[in-house]
Amino acid sequence: MAQVFHRSANTIARASIIGVVVVVSVLLWAALEVQRSPYATYQNVAQAQPVPFSHQHHVGGDGIDCRYCHTSVENSSFAGIPPTKTCMNCHSQIWTNAPMLEPVRESYRTGQSLIWTRVNDLPDFVYFDHSIHINKGVGCASCHGPVDKMPLTYAANSLQMEWCLNCHRAPEKFLRPRDQVFNMRYEPPSSQNKVKLDDGSVFTDQIALGNELKHRYNIRSIEGITSCSTCHR
């Protein structure tokens, strides 16, 4: 009786086993990459808004502090979206006829809210509080990126859990002095850039500064701030 299988069958069998493993891995990898990509996270994607509000103009150009509009960021979980009246503080006199600002004026006349599109939208199963981050020395720009250079606002980071953990696992890499939290031009310490604290101590190294601030600001242990229930309550 002739052989059922040709002698190449062994090779084909081995190749197809390896092939299946490779194809499945590639597909899994691709799926993970897609859900991390801006396609899924909207990272670095500017959103359409009722008024094309430019942080670059207001923060970078006019030098308005974040807290002028986001008034509750230091005391509340929510940074605060300014009421139309805050816009009209200046725009009752400046650019009063600009067609671009008509939705703002209409909102002020009618009392109807402007409906903005959320740019940084955390899932509802995450507990997040702005005030604790601000008061422990996390700069606005550390999460929100160079807002003072954004003509249209976009999320500078993915807001995925792996991104949160980057900092929660090693806060010393990102902490800055409290009085620099709102400074959009802050540079972390380096050999060219000394960072001075209130008491006069000078740092030229981010890790050294971060460890000192971790101690001064009583930042909880890594176990504490990476515990599941810290953010998923």
């Binding site: 979980s77 929510f78 605060g80 979206i81 409906i115 899932p123 509802d124 199963f125």
Partner: peptide, 13 residues
Amino acid sequence: MQNQPYYRPLREN
């Protein structure tokens, strides 16, 4: 799960 039926500040209703 991403959007749950409760109101975060200033959410639409």
